[in-house]
Amino acid sequence: MEQKKENKETLNLTNVSYRYKDADKDDYVLRNINYSFELGKIYAIKGKSGSGKTTLLSLISGLETKYEGSILYDDKNLKKIDLDTYRNTYTGIVFQSYNLLPHLTAVENIILSMDISKVKVDNKRSRAIELMKSVGLDESFANRRVLKLSGGEQQRIAIARSLSYNPNIILADEPTGNLDKDTEDEILKIFKTLAHKENKCVIIVTHSKNVCDNVDIVYELKRKNKVRDND
């Protein structure tokens, strides 16, 4: 699979439907979703609580596999590829609660991610510090335990971790949900840079109007699955 494509569809969801295991037969959280995502753009998926935003992100990230329809990454069906490789090579995931390993330092969290992806980097530590700088954290944060960092700093580390193996797609689940307005703006700026300057496809699940106003395309999830183009 090629890692870089210029503004071409990289993710394609066709008639994707999903219902929980214990739900009634017709009680779908997501029904016939048909979304496309391109490199170089930043997307927001918004919707009320329970509308299936995070579930959709789980399907796109390959963490949930029991759905109907198809999700294609570079024309390859996610159901037919190795999802561990997909997650550790082509997609980077950023969570609202950061999900960093608390017993590791900031730089170790990033290096761990490189180790898992088997990305070839001459000096992993230097690369990790470089990534930290790209998200606005200087070298002094490198050896600090992540629990000693603020929410905004932890989220930057999580973004740096997701970028550590240079994936095409960045998936972010409420990345600014725990952060104040100023920090939210800074994080959004990072995501915009990633999409527009580094040609990544950034998909953000959010409640925030501010986020929706700053992305290229917004998908709104309702039971009828409205689509609103922000361009």
Binding site: S61, L63, D84, T85, Y86, R87, N88, T89, I93, N99, L100, L101, L112, S113, I116, S117, R161
Partner: peptide, 12 residues
């Protein structure tokens, strides 16, 4: 820890 590692793509 297992959850995080699996999420970022570590194989079982």
């Amino acid at each position: 820890e297992i959850g995080v590692l699996r999420t970022i793509g570590m194989k079982k």
